[in-house]
Design a protein around this nucleic acid. Structure first.
Length: 263
DNA sequence: ATGTCAGAAAGTTTCTGA
């Protein structure tokens, strides 16, 4: 099974890039974040015509929004709300092969890494805490689960272009990295990307629009993640960040992450 | 620290969030 997670930053404006992803890599399942479209305007037919008859989406006007596209039939489509808000930051399905797939868009958190003065950062931390409680409560050693998405946190020193310069910048602060570790522990999640792209290697999935020459300067961060339960660890056959899609005309600021599983 | 985007509202320009 080839699985992609991609913060698309508007699904409607980048349908051609989705088509390129499909033509070049033919993923079985694609998880999108930041679709930025209300459900009534979601381009369902166009995506189905690309070869994805099974689509679960949960969106809103302008902001957030997630979608799961699949060649594989699924059941139990769900979309949970977090932090008592109605923003669309989660969706899940159970694939026909029995694997539960969760797609998350964790809040970015604003600019100032102080939860007392910056409500966006407080929201991000609360969101992480709720996810941690949720994972702990429903933990099941026998369940086969995958959790993907734009987590908006780069935990390792090699997940950012300069650890020292970014250690007080949201996405790479100690407090976020600690919360993410607690979340990972609560579900015994395995970082599937880092099974194949070794932790000592730099690995980025996001480059700011503001940096010109994004590839040459390579001031990136690994904000997008694929986590699997331990019983799926040996099924993770490979991982690739699809840089060519970040290099298209009018790209998303995130590159897709492709993980191949032998399931 | 902010050089760029996307979407929305109402203005061919400003705001917000990222």
């Amino acid at each position: 099974m080839k699985l992609v997670t991609w913060n698309i930053n508007s699904i409607r404006i980048r349908l051609e890039h989705v088509q390129k992803l499909v033509s070049d890599h033919a993923p079985d399942v694609i998880c999108f974040q930041e679709t930025k479209v209300r459900d009534s305007l979601f381009p369902l037919e166009a995506l189905q015509e690309m070869g994805y008859p099974h689509i679960h989406f949960a969106g809103e006007k302008s902001y957030n929004g997630v979608a799961i596209l699949s060649k594989i039939p699924f059941s139990d489509p769900d979309a949970l709300s977090w932090c008592a808000r109605e923003d669309k930051r989660h969706s899940s399905v159970i694939l026909e092969n029995g694997i539960e797939l969760n797609n998350f868009y964790i809040p970015a958190g604003g600019d100032e890494p102080n939860a007392e003065t910056n409500p966006k950062f407080a929201h991000k931390l609360q969101f992480l805490d709720e996810m941690t409680d949720w994972c702990a409560k429903r933990f099941d050693a026998d369940a086969k689960r995958i959790m993907v998405g734009d987590f908006n946190i780069a935990p390792l020193e090699t997940d950012v272009w300069d650890h020292k310069k970014l250690k007080n910048i949201i996405t790479h602060t100690e407090i976020e990295i600690t919360r993410l570790a607690q979340l990972q522990q609560a579900g015994q999640w395995v970082d599937a990307m880092r099974l194949h792209i070794l932790p000592q290697e730099k690995c980025f999935t996001w480059w700011s629009y503001r940096a010109r020459d994004w590839l040459a300067t390579n001031k990136g961060r690994r904000l997008d993640h694929v986590w699997v339960t331990p019983n799926l660890q040996d099924s993770v056959a490979g991982c690739e960040v699809l840089l060519d899609l970040r290099g298209q005309d009018k790209p998303s600021d995130h590159a897709p992450v492709l993980v191949t599983l032998t399931v």
